[in-house]
């Protein structure tokens, strides 16, 4: 089951390696990972998505918490956190399909961020379900490339 971890960590060299080392040493694959500075420049905010059962997750959280560089670690689900991901999609643009394509992009509040003679790049943000749906809808036009930022999550309240 996919689980989302939110970490606040010291913004220092080695911190990321120390954290990811705990996963790799145990053969746990990271589904997505984002790191960036926070309102406090000495702290980074990290969102990690992993596929783990409850028992394995509990052990992993304790190991993360044990790291000196990890200030806080929490496991959140969609009810407790706002989760967003950014997706860029390069889609084929055939003559005659332009209007329909733009209309469908509009439905997802996607924006066109690059226009080339035969393709568009669309930008969209949302949660997992919305992005999956977005990809499904645009498959019929011919997807050339998709890139996702990985999820960022922030606890509610």
């Amino acid at each position: 089951m996919l689980r989302t971890l939110i970490l606040r960590v010291e913004n220092r060299p080695g911190a990321l390696a120390r954290i990811t080392g705990l996963f790799s040493a145990r053969g746990i694959n990271i589904e997505s990972l984002t790191v960036a500075r926070t309102e406090d420049p000495t702290l980074s905010h990290m969102t990690i998505v992993v596929d783990l059962d409850d028992v394995a997750l509990e052990k992993l959280v304790k190991l993360l918490d044990r790291l000196v560089d990890v200030v806080t670690v929490t496991v959140v689900d969609t009810r407790e956190a706002v989760e967003r991901e950014l997706l860029l999609l390069k889609v084929r643009q055939e003559p005659g399909q332009k209007l329909e394509l733009l209309k469908e992009a509009e439905l997802f509040r996607a924006r066109v961020v690059d226009v080339a003679p035969h393709s568009y790049v669309l930008e969209v943000t949302g949660d997992e379900d919305k992005l999956e749906a977005f990809i499904r809808v645009f498959e019929k036009y011919g997807i050339l490339e998709v890139v996702r930022s990985g999820k960022v999550a922030l606890a509610r309240g």
């Binding site: 060299p13 080695g14 390696a17 120390r18 080392g21 040493a25 000196v68």
Partner: peptide, 14 residues
């Protein structure tokens, strides 16, 4: 060395 010893130290520093 900090890379090599990361998994076998409580913490390390460069």
């Amino acid at each position: 060395v900090v890379g090599i010893t990361r998994p076998c130290t409580k913490h390390n520093y460069l």
